[in-house]
Design a protein around this nucleic acid. Structure first.
Lengths: 228, 228
DNA sequence: GGGTATAGTATTGTAAACAATAATGGTTGA
DNA sequence: TCAACCATTATTGTTTACAATACTATACCC
C-alpha cells in the first residue's frame, strides 16, 4: 500500500505548518529520533522527510551534525522577497487568465476566514490564511507551477520574517486583500498589480536585516499538537 | 567527511545533464541497482538522489514500481512554459539591477561557446549552452533564487521538448541571444523583454501537444559515459 | 581559575539482510 | 490460438544492527 508516501507528506506538512505559524524557530535542531517519536514514525521516514524539506530550503542538513530549521541569510532573504514580488506583481499585471466567478468566490471565502481570525485576535491563523489568499490568487490567475513555486517562497518568507521582523509591527494588512479583490472584479489589473507591489513592499519594510536575529531554539514539545 | 553529499550531487548532476541533452527519454525506468552499478555507488545513495530529483519533478516515483523519468502532461507543460515566460520576460522588463560589464563578459563568453558548438554541428552542446545563457542572464539581472527556480524550469522544459517537439524544427535561435545582448548593452530593456517573449514563444510554437509522444525508453547504457 | 585533553555519551551515517510487491514466463484449459 | 492463472524471478521497501562522527562533562595541567 502507498500509505508510506502519505505518512511522509503528513509529517512534512506538520513541519511546514509549524514553520508557517512561527512555532519552529530558524536554527532549531531537528533530531531524527525525537521527530520519529513525536510523529510515531521511524528514523528512515523522518530522514526522507528532512531530505525533502532541505530541497525546499526549509531545512538545512549539516553532514554529521543533523538537520536544522534553515536560517536564511540577509542576501537570501532579499532574493526570496524580490522573487516573490516579481512573480506576484507580474502575474497580476499580465494574468494568465481573468478571475472567474468561481475564483472570486474562493477568495471571498478565504477573506471571511481572515476576518474571523482577526475578530478572534488569532494572529497565527491570520498568517496562515493570508498565505492561502495569495496562493489561491496565483492559482486562479496563473497556474499550478507558479503556485507551487510561490508556496515554497512563502514558507521561506515565514522563516525570514521570524528572523528579521522589526518589533511592534503588524505585517500583511488584511485590508489590502479586500481592495485587491475589488480591483480584480473591476478588471483593473494594472492597479491591482500596483497594489500588490505596495502590499509586498509593506511587508518588506517591516524587516531589519541589521538586527542579529534571536535564535529561540524551541524544543520540539511544540510539535506534538501538530502530529495529525 | 562530507563526501557523501558531494557524490550524490555528482550523480544528480549526471542524470540532469542526461535529461538536458535529451539522452534520457521521459518515461525511462531508472532501476536502483543498475544506477548504483553505473555510478559505482550503492542503492541507499541512489535512492536519496531519486527522491531529490522527484522533488524537482524530473523523476516520478511510483510506489512499489520504482523511479521513472517524468512525463509531463500537456497541462503541466503549458504551465511550465508560461511560468518560465513570466519570470524571464518580467525580469528583463524590470531587472533587479542593470547588466554589469562583468555580466556582459560572461554572456559573451557563453555566446562564443554557442557559436563554436554551432560550427561543430553539436546540437547537444548547443542545447546545454543555450540554457546556460538564460541562467546567466537571470543571475546577472536578477538573483540566485530566481536562477535556481529557472534552473528547474529549464530541466522540465527539456523533458517537454523531448516529448512534444514537432519534427523538422530548430528551437531556440541563437541569433536571438546575440540581439538580446545588444539590446541590454544599449539599456533598452523594454525591447529586450519583448524579444525574450518572442524568443520563448518561438520555442513553444515548435511544440505539438496533440502528437502522442514517443516513449523511447533508452537503456541506461547511455549513462555510463556520464559517470564523472 | 581557566583552558585543554580525554573518556563517555548521544546522534547521525551506512550497510546488509529480510520482507513485500510487482513484473515475467510458462502452463493449462477452453 | 488465445486467455487466464500460477509459479518464478526481479525489484523495491523496511528494519535492524553496527560504524563513524560530533557533542558533553569531567579531570588534569598550566
Amino acid at each position: 500500500m502507498g500509505s508510506s508516501a502519505k505518512e511522509e507528506a503528513r509529517i512534512a506538512d506538520a513541519l511546514c505548518k509549524a514553520v508557517l505559524e512561527r512555532k519552529l524557530a530558524p536554527g532549531s535542531k531537528l533530531p531524527e529520533e525525537e521527530l520519529a517519536q513525536i510523529f510515531r514514525s521511524n528514523r528512515a521516514k523522518i530522514r526522507r522527510v528532512l531530505l525533502s524539506l532541505s530541497r525546499s530550503h526549509i531545512v538545512t542538513l549539516e553532514p554529521g551534525r543533523g538537520a536544522f530549521v534553515s536560517r536564511p541569510s540577509p542576501q537570501e532573504a532579499r532574493d526570496v522577497l524580490a522573487s516573490r514580488r516579481l512573480i506576484e506583481v507580474s502575474l497580476l499585471a499580465h494574468p494568465y487568465r481573468k478571475l472567474s466567478a468561481q475564483g472570486a468566490t474562493r477568495l471571498r471565502r478565504i477573506m471571511a476566514q481572515e476576518a474571523e481570525a482577526h475578530e478572534a485576535h488569532d494572529a497565527i491563523a491570520m498568517i496562515y490564511i493570508s498565505g492561502q489568499f495569495h496562493l489561491t490568487l496565483i492559482e486562479e490567475l496563473g497556474n499550478r507551477v507558479l503556485k507551487s513555486i510561490t508556496d515554497e517562497l512563502i514558507l521561506r518568507m515565514s522563516l525570514i520574517i521570524t528572523m528579521y521582523e522589526r518589533h511592534n509591527t503588524t505585517c500583511c494588512l488584511s485590508s489590502d486583500h479586500h481592495d485587491l479583490l475589488e480591483l480584480l472584479l473591476a478588471d483593473n489589473y494594472a492597479e491591482a498589480s500596483a497594489l500588490m507591489a505596495r502590499h509586498l513592499e509593506g511587508i518588506e519594510s517591516c524587516l531589519d536585516f541589521h538586527r542579529e536575529p534571536v535564535t529561540t531554539t524551541i524544543l520540539s514539545q511544540i510539535l506534538k499538537p501538530l502530529r495529525d
